[in-house]
Simulated scan of single mutants.
Amino acid sequence: MPFDEVGDISVEIKTFIRRHIHSIAILDVLFFLKHREYKAWTPQEVSVEMRSNPGYAKSQLEELVASGMVCREGAGYRYLVSDSAETVEKLELLYNTRRSSVMNYIYSQPIDNIRDFANAFKIKKD
């Protein structure tokens, strides 16, 4: 179940989101591919369907490849039924029934990676 006993997002889903999902856009791309397994989608095609630019679509697709939920197939990308498939199903159910809860949880996560990246460019005083 995507909910715990008190109706909050389950620990399983929270852990999955923290590890793999940093934006609603990447979640939308994941669900888009999941429901269109019949072909491999190029970044250009995904960008048209998702109304984004091809470079951004490619970066999202590559993130999903790195997380093991999508595979490359020639010049395209296809949803990969993996060990995470059951969790993806639960997350999609939750997203479809309590979208604002999922959105709030995704965007309430710390941005440590972004902060670490930005800190790498800080000029240190001697």
Rank of each mutant, 00 (worst) to 15 (best):
V102A: 08
V6H: 14
T87C: 11
T97R: 10
L30M: 14
S67D: 07
R19L: 14
I111P: 01
S23A: 09
E92L: 10
A120I: 02
A66H: 05
G7H: 11
D116Y: 10
S23Y: 02
R72H: 06
T97E: 09
E12A: 13
S47H: 06
N96S: 14
Q60G: 04
K14S: 06
G74P: 04
N53D: 12
I17T: 03
V48T: 07
N113R: 13
I114Q: 11
D83R: 13
A40V: 02
F16I: 01
E12N: 11
L80N: 11
K34I: 00
V102N: 10
L91M: 03
A85T: 03
L91T: 00
G76D: 03
I106V: 15
S10C: 05
A120Y: 08
L27Q: 09
M103L: 14
I114P: 00
N53Q: 10
D83M: 08
G68T: 09
A57Q: 04
S23H: 06
R18T: 08
S59E: 09
V88L: 05
W41R: 05
Y95K: 06
Y107S: 03
Y79S: 05
V81H: 15
R98I: 00
V48P: 01
Y107F: 11
D8N: 14
I13Y: 04
V48K: 15
Y77A: 00
I21R: 06
Y56I: 12
D83C: 08
A57V: 10
G55Y: 03
H35R: 15
A57R: 07
F117P: 01
N113K: 10
L91C: 00
V70N: 04
E86V: 04
D4T: 03
L94G: 07
Y105N: 05
L27W: 03
V70E: 04
R72Y: 05
N104R: 15
R99F: 09
S82H: 07
Y105C: 08
